[in-house]
Design a binder for these strands. Structure first.
Length: 562
RNA sequence: AACCCUGUGGUGUAAUGGCAGCACAAGUGGUUUUGGUCCACUUAGUUCAGGUUCGAGUCCUGACAGGGUUGCCA
């Protein structure tokens, strides 16, 4: 048992594998795969599957394949292939040289289908779609024998050959497995395994006009690749008898085992490809990589590290229970990761001018401050300090409540890494709004410590008015206003539950060094939250920061209680 | 409706017939040059009814609840 194995908790799938290994199944091999269909972008739910499949292979010293499940040319597109590769790689799942396409196996699948026909276990059926349904029966009534079921092997071979040759129009015929029209499991009632589609395929071009269906194709893909444990989501559970039937009927290189787990559901978001596509298509979000999206690329652009996603996937576990995970757990994993890794900086969201009356006019000094108190190796930096600063509007109260530890007339606070200042007065404009604060500083508190040992309760952040720069911040919040989208009324439009405040664009004042950060850099704005210089839009001339997640805020709870 | 799967604190999970534990969330207190982090503590759980057993969250039966299946999608 390796050291990593001890550290990672087992889930029920690992238990199955462990037993298989002990029983000597598969010659001690463990091989998994992630088989996305290239018809959409990957999301956090896929990340769960990727982490599970890759993590399982790693845990047992096995192999992990990446395979595009591209058996339906009319739904799939190369547009998605690139993003899938990028996202899986970014998440850290390494398929080495094992990147495959289901369509790479079309020749073999065709041969397997011919085999089935020769065994009398498959036949060509020319029922229309409507008739097909009629013959299939219902959940409560058995199906009845389709006319084509009695056809001879020779006829079936000939017909299937001609289907392949393009002699028949789309939908006029299918190849069906001959199993049991009376099975209580509808998927076993002679399922279609090949359909005619005169469509170009993104990988095989115009070579084929017949394409295998999922149930026939997937188990064969697994078998061809030598997959030992084929992990999929719960909705395929009822397909498992068919998966096994095909592998047991045909002489395949191996007999992979399908194991189902519950897909991830997260509060305040949607995971369905259809809905995500609709959000993109209708412009309700700004593309697949909109940081509000639960897509991998959206989360990446928001500033969520791959390591945090991996940690999250490890934390939620793997079961067959249909659960709804709170988004707060993801937030926790993100904060936990970024707390250790993100350098700190000061930025003022709602600037209020603070003039230090006893500070020399025109003087600018540089104060030294730590880049990350959690990581001494991150070093220190210099931040310009001067007579006129900006502080956070919320850090001053005209009539301070009892527990308020920040600025008010007569109160002393520490300006982070700089000096103690005491507020002396404030200025209001004609509307009664506070526009300026006046204070005095104590030169003996440079760096933020009093030589006489006196303490202050509050420490606030600041930027120098003249030296600070303007930046754009994009403040992201929950995509939806309700936690459980599956619980909304049937007749309601799910889009009407979108959170109108899921994105707020604002201006802020940043310490000058922040503009120099390259795009795609994590940073904590102290006392505010974790931000990420936007990979596409951030530049030195026009700094743009995405709020990844806000810092935990216990002050707001105190306020709420009072 | 028929068949299949699943039910452990508010949420996500652990227990492999033997003291129901962990994390998140919530709350209280402490530390702190971020009302962040960190530390300590508190609240709170085996869906129900039978059965097997010295002993059941775990095994059996039934009920109840939730989910899936009824595409020539995956």
């Amino acid at each position: 048992m390796s050291e990593t194995e001890i550290n990672l908790p087992d889930n029920f799938i690992h238990e199955i594998i462990r037993k298989d290994l002990e029983a000597g199944k598969n010659g001690g091999a463990v091989k998994t795969r992630f088989p996305p269909e290239p018809n959409g972008y990957l999301h956090i739910g896929h990340a769960k599957s990727i982490c599970l499949n890759f993590g399982t292979a790693q845990k047992f010293g096995g192999k992990f394949n990446l395979r595009l499940d591209d058996t339906n040319p009319v739904k799939e597109d190369t547009e998605y292939v690139e993003s899938i590769l990028e996202d899986v790689k970014w998440l850290g799942a390494d398929w080495e040289d094992r990147f495959f396409h289901a369509s790479d196996y079309f020749d073999q699948m065709y041969e397997y289908a011919v085999q089935l026909i020769k065994m009398g276990k498959a036949y060509v059926c020319e029922l229309s779609e409507e008739e097909f349904k009629e013959y299939r029966g219902t959940l409560t009534e058995p199906g009845k024998e389709p006319p084509g079921r009695k056809r001879t092997i020779e006829e079936n071979l000939d017909l299937f050959e001609r289907m392949k040759a393009g002699e028949f129009p789309d939908g006029s015929k299918v190849l069906r497995a001959r199993i049991d029209m009376a099975s209580p499991n509808i998927h076993m009632r002679d399922p279609a395994i090949y359909r005619i589609r005169h469509a170009d395929h993104h990988n095989t071009g115009s070579k084929w006009c017949i394409y295998p269906l999922y149930d026939f194709a997937h188990c064969l893909e697994d078998a061809i690749e030598g997959i030992t444990h084929s992990i999929c989501t719960l909705e395929f559970e009822i397909h498992r008898p068919l998966y096994d039937w095909i592998l047991n009927t045909l002489d395949t290189p191996c007999k992979p085992q399908q194991i189902e787990f519950a897909r991830l559901n997260l509060t305040y978001t949607v995971m369905s490809k259809r809905k995500l596509l609709e959000l993109v298509k209708t412009g309700l979000v700004n593309g697949w990589d909109d940081p509000r999206m639960p897509t991998i690329c959206g989360m990446r652009r928001r500033g969520i590290p791959a390591s945090a996603i991996r940690d999250f996937c490890e934390t939620i576990g793997v079961t067959k229970f249909n659960s709804l995970t709170e988004i707060e757990l993801l937030d926790h994993c993100v904060r936990d990761d970024l707390n250790k890794s993100a350098r700190r900086a000061m930025a003022v969201m709602n600037p209020l001018k603070l003039v230090i009356d006893n500070y020399p006019e025109g003087q600018v000094e540089e104060v030294e401050t730590v880049n990350n108190p959690e990581d001494p190796a991150a070093g220190t930096r210099k931040v310009p300090f001067s007579k006129t600063l900006y502080i956070e509007r919320d850090d001053f109260m005209e009539n301070p409540v009892k527990q308020f530890h920040r600025l008010a007339v007569g109160k002393e606070v520490r300006l982070r890494s700089a000096y103690f200042v005491t507020c002396t007065s404030f200025v209001k404009d004609e509307n009664g709004e506070i526009v300026e604060l006046h204070a005095t500083y104590d030169p003996a508190t440079k760096g933020g410590n009093a030589s006489d040992g006196r303490k202050v309760k509050g420490t606030i952040h600041w930027v120098s008015a003249d030296q600070s720069l303007e930046a754009e911040v994009r403040l992201y919040d929950k995509l939806f206003t309700v936690p459980d989208l599956s619980a909304i009324p049937e007749d309601a439009d799910w889009k009407s539950y979108l959170n109108p405040e899921s994105l707020k664009v604002a201006k802020c004042r940043i310490e000058p060094g922040l503009a120099e950060l390259p795009p795609g850099t994590h940073v904590q704005f102290e006392r505010i939250g974790y931000f990420f210089s936007d990979p596409k839009d951030h530049s030195k001339e026009h700094p743009v920061f995405n709020r990844t997640v806000a810092l935990k805020d216990s002050w707001s709870k105190i306020v709420k209680k009072a």
